[in-house]
């Protein structure tokens, strides 16, 4: 999704959020990621004003008070954390681990295929279809991508072919490379 993203060309407008909208987003985030509760005030301090950058291809970025991209979403989809945020608070998104062999594919932006999630080096935590997931890897500590489950983990085990996770954002894509927006 951010393969061709370029801060300069892809952002069409940036708007300040009304405090009511801001509250709404905060509530939505806590609903989607209950574990965020512990540190949400560090990520999105209540008194700060956030902005939304509207980008091409129906992508929106949520910027916190310091201009860091903290969450993004596609159309009306769920808000997903950026990897830079997730690395700082790596515990609030459901994690799925791919095997070593899948790493280079994910790093080139490919979706995760079911066998990469079911082989001996992989490990899944039970989740429903369309859950936002952090893509972890065998032998590695940090997330390398963020995506959405296209099947429930139960079905991934059963079907074991085709796409299991649709990759939205990965290390070194355009979003990873963009700097805070002042």
């Amino acid at each position: 999704m951010f393969k061709k993203f370029e801060e300069k060309d892809s952002i069409s407008s940036i708007q300040q959020l009304k405090s009511s909208v801001q509250k709404g987003i905060r509530a939505k985030l806590l609903e989607a990621y209950p574990k965020l509760e512990t540190h949400i005030d560090l990520i999105l301090p209540k008194k700060d004003s956030y902005r939304i950058a509207k980008c091409h291809d129906h992508i929106e970025l949520l910027l916190n008070g310091t201009g860091e991209q903290v969450f993004f979403r596609h159309r009306d989809g769920p808000w997903m954390p950026t990897l830079r945020l997730l690395h700082k608070f790596p515990y609030f998104v459901t994690m799925q681990q791919v095997d070593k062999g899948a790493i280079r594919f994910v790093l080139s932006g490919a979706n995760v295929m079911c066998p990469g999630l079911t082989s001996p080096g992989a490990s899944m935590t039970p989740a429903e279809k369309s859950t936002v997931v952090a893509i972890m890897a065998e032998g590695k500590e940090h997330a390398l991508a963020i995506g959405l489950l296209t099947l429930s983990t139960e079905d991934i085990l059963k079907v074991n072919k085709g796409i299991g996770i649709e990759t939205y954002h990965f290390l070194n894509d355009g979003l990873w490379k963009s700097k805070p927006i002042k």
């Binding site: 512990t38 690395h87 608070f89 790596p90 515990y91 994690m95 799925q96 681990q97 490990s123 972890m136």
Partner: peptide, 17 residues
């Protein structure tokens, strides 16, 4: 693996990492 993929802050870790 299950332990590593568990949700929630870890004890003894200061956030942000």
């Amino acid at each position: 693996a299950a332990e590593r993929l568990k949700l929630g802050p870890r004890e003894g870790v200061t956030y942000p990492v």
